[in-house]
Simulated scan of single mutants.
Amino acid sequence: MENQTTPPYFYLTMFKDLGYLSFVYFGVALITYGSTVLLNVVILLVILRESELHQPMYIFISCLSINGLYGTNALFPRLLRDLLSARPAVSYSACILQAFAMFTYASCEFTILTLMAHDRYVAICRPLRYHSIMTAKAVALMVAMAWLYPALTISMGTVAAVRLPLCGNEVGKLYCSNWAVVRLSCVSTAANNAYGIFIAVTTVFVPFTYILFTYVKILVICRKRSTEFKRKAFYTCVPHIVSFVTYSIAIFCEITFSRYEGELPGIVAVVLSLEFVVIPPVLNPVIYGMNFPVVRRGIKKALQKTKPTSFFNS
């Protein structure tokens, strides 16, 4: 048996096959990183500044932007550095921290999307009780649970992973993930795998099922209502549906990559491994910024205030 140890460094092996493409990826990653930060910060500032946006739906949108910034900053700074390194290496503690951040980002995205689905369900199916159900206290409690539950459960999984003796230090990804570290263990990981399934069920599959349930109920209600009611319901639900479907596909791609790691062509592996933390944070602020007139007005107002005053108009 190989020596059981805790390696001081992990080597990210997917970088070694990039060659000259690493410079191309660096440029694309830098532009994507800057665009993601800019778009989400704009959405956050607009929702913060405009009092008419201090409503549950927009609070949940701001939570999506915060989570997008969290996931983006967990990935891109190190990714940009590693793309220019001859042999990217990450310390054990930094790898575990990044794995925790990426996992909590992924889980919180689903829990926040669940809150948004619940908000739309109450607004459409129980409109007369909306304000009594979606109170400020209830919204604050839901937001807290959407962040704290994934953080708590994933913290416990991370502690369990840290206790495992490892017999290798090569991670076949562009970033550190909990599963990539666990699979390097010299001993049985049955308990870790079982707990990982528990986390997946409670932070992914249960929210996924509830979101589907809410839209089934919304469709049932809409069938009995007027065309105008259906139009308004469709208008308010489409952005969330797009976000939900996009993220579900992205997570499926990440699971596929984890299953067939090492068996996929380089560019396919890169896309599948990064899609879940690249596309949603870019797409979400664009969807919500363009779809809701009140958000568009807030953005236009902010842009007008930042325009420099002309010398001739002063």
Rank of each mutant, 00 (worst) to 15 (best):
L141T: 09
I112T: 06
I199E: 13
V162P: 00
L44D: 14
T214C: 13
G168S: 04
T209R: 01
S22P: 06
L30F: 13
F311S: 09
P285C: 08
L83H: 01
N178E: 15
V270L: 14
L274D: 03
F244S: 07
Q4P: 00
R296A: 05
L39K: 02
M57W: 07
F252P: 00
K301V: 09
K300L: 13
R49P: 06
G196H: 08
L84D: 00
M57D: 08
P127F: 02
R78K: 12
L21N: 12
E263M: 11
L48D: 12
F234T: 07
R81P: 00
N193D: 13
K307R: 14
V41R: 02
F244A: 04
V187F: 07
F244V: 13
Y11C: 05
M142D: 03
G298E: 06
G68D: 12
F100I: 07
A136F: 13
T236N: 11
S248G: 06
Y288N: 06
R183T: 13
T135I: 10
Y58W: 09
L21T: 06
F15Y: 15
C237F: 05
T236Q: 11
T111P: 03
E52K: 04
K173G: 10
L264D: 01
S107T: 08
E254G: 05
R183D: 15
P165Y: 05
I197D: 14
Y260E: 14
L174C: 06
R87T: 14
M142I: 01
A117P: 04
K137R: 13
I255G: 15
I199D: 14
G289R: 01
N193H: 12
L212C: 08
L38I: 12
F244N: 00
I221V: 13
F100E: 10
V282R: 08
L53F: 08
R259S: 15
I31M: 15
V37D: 13
V271H: 11
A74S: 14
Y149K: 00
Q55N: 05
L272G: 04
F292G: 01
P265L: 06
N284S: 05
T72F: 08
V159F: 13
G266I: 12
I197W: 15
P88F: 07
N193E: 15
Y288A: 01
R126D: 05
F26N: 01
A269T: 09
C108M: 15
P56H: 02
F76G: 02
A180F: 14
I255E: 12
E109F: 05
I249K: 07
T13A: 12
Q98M: 13
S273E: 10
I154F: 06
